[in-house]
C-alpha cells in the first residue's frame, strides 16, 4: 500500500512542477549497508544537480 501511495505522490508532485528527482523512493533493509550508502550517494548527487529547493519553501 505504501508503494501505491508513493507511486501516486511522486507522479503528482512531478505533475504540479516539483522536479521528479526531488521525490525519490526506494527500499533499503537494515542489513544492506553498501546499498544504503549507494542510495544516499545517488540521491545526494541528484539533488545537488538540481540545486537548492525554492518551491514550497516558506520565507517569513
Amino acid at each position: 500500500m505504501a508503494r501505491r501511495k508513493f507511486a501516486t505522490l511522486k507522479s503528482f508532485l512531478d505533475y504540479i512542477g516539483i522536479e521528479g528527482d526531488r521525490t525519490i523512493f526506494t527500499w533499503v533493509s537494515a542489513s544492506e549497508g553498501e546499498r544504503f550508502a549507494n542510495v544516499i550517494k545517488g540521491v545526494t548527487a541528484k539533488v545537488q544537480a538540481l540545486g537548492p529547493a525554492t518551491k514550497l519553501v516558506k520565507e517569513l
Binding site: R3, F6, A7, I24, F25, T26, N38, V39, G42, V43
Partner: peptide
C-alpha cells in the same frame, strides 16, 4: 507499479 522506485 514500481518503476518509480530508485535503484542505484
Amino acid at each position: 507499479k514500481e518503476d518509480f522506485i530508485y535503484n542505484p
